[in-house]
Every structure is written in C-alpha cells, then in structure tokens.
C-alpha cells in the first residue's frame, strides 16, 4: 500500500521522531537530570500524539499527571539525592550487561515486530466515532460501565498515599 504524505502523516512523523529520540535519550544520558528532561519531552510529545488520535482529554491528563506531577517528583528526588554528594548518581560502564541488554532488546523488537505488528500493516481506517475522546464521553463511560474499576483505582491511590507517607516519615 503506498503511503501518501498527508499533513497528518507529517505531524505524526515529527512527533514520533521527537518521541523516539527522547526515549533513546532517557537511556543514553549519564546524567539523571538530563534523562528526566528527555522523559518530560517524551511525555509531552506523547500528549500531542494522543491529540492526533483525538483523545484530547487523555492528552491533557497525560500532561497534568505525567509531565506536571510525576516527572516533577522525579526531578525533586534526583535533586534531593544530589544535595548529599555530587557523585552519588554516577555510573560505571558494564560491557557484559550492555551487550546482553542490546541483544535481548533487539530480539524482543524483531520478534514483536514480525509477529504482532505485521498483521496490522495494512490497517489505516479509523473506526472510532467522532468525539469519542471528549470529556463528556469519557466521563459517562467512566461512571457507568467502569465505575467499579474506578473505585478500586481510587482505593489503590489511597493506599499509595498512605504507603508513601509511611515510607517518607521517620517518626509518625
């Protein structure tokens, strides 16, 4: 099937290129702050990829939850640990580990690409109805069909809060 250079495809190309490069950057940078910054950019470009999939509510949630909260926490912890000693986050190279990692990663990529992604090569028709990613649609589904998973997720978050407070506080 010939792929035509539509504006959508060009936008996707730019965003996907950014996401892929920053994903590599997360692993490649030795400095943890730079890794975290790459991950921020990655999540930001993913949010725009969600917009291209018309999931605007989830794109916004992605920015609020990931770039706005989770990555800020990461940076906070990195800096807090850096306060003690500057060398604490330095890494020594380990060639065996690297070789094994790349081997395993390449095998995983090849296997999944040929076995899982390949059947979908021809698919480019979008079936989802208009406005399926709007706040109204998502909210209605979340509070009707998925209300029990939603409640369980809230309990999970509560447990997370209690657990992290217990971990962080020296004296209750």
């Amino acid at each position: 099937m010939p792929v035509q250079a539509t504006p959508d495809l060009m936008i996707f190309g730019v965003l996907a290129g950014l996401a892929a490069m920053t994903a590599v950057g997360v692993v490649a940078f030795r400095n943890a702050v730079r890794s975290a910054l790459c991950l921020v950019l990655n999540f930001f470009s993913l949010a725009f990829l969600y917009f291209t999939l018309q999931a605007e509510l989830l794109g916004m949630t992605q920015i609020i939850v990931y770039t706005g909260a989770i990555m800020v926490l990461f940076l906070f912890v990195i800096m807090l640990l850096n306060l003690g000693s500057l060398q604490v986050l330095d890494e020594r190279p380990d060639l065996i580990k690297k070789g094994l990692g790349f081997l395993f990663g390449g095998a995983l990529f090849g296997l999944t690409a040929t076995q899982v992604v390949q059947p979908f090569l021809q698919t480019s028709q979008q079936f989802a109805p208009e406005g399926f990613g709007s706040p109204q649609a998502v909210g209605r589904t979340l509070f009707t069909s998925y209300v029990w998973p939603f409640e369980i997720a809230s309990i999970l978050l509560l447990i997370g809060i209690v657990g992290s407070i217990l971990l962080a506080k020296r004296r209750i």
Partner: peptide
Amino acid sequence: NVGILYVMAISSLGVYGIV
C-alpha cells in the same frame, strides 16, 4: 472542549523553568 484543563496542564509546566 478541554479549555480549563489546558490551563491547568500548562500551569503545571511552570515549575520546570525554576527547577
């Protein structure tokens, strides 16, 4: 149709410059 969420999202990015 996510107007105010957009404001919340972008305002949460304000911390990065400072950090």
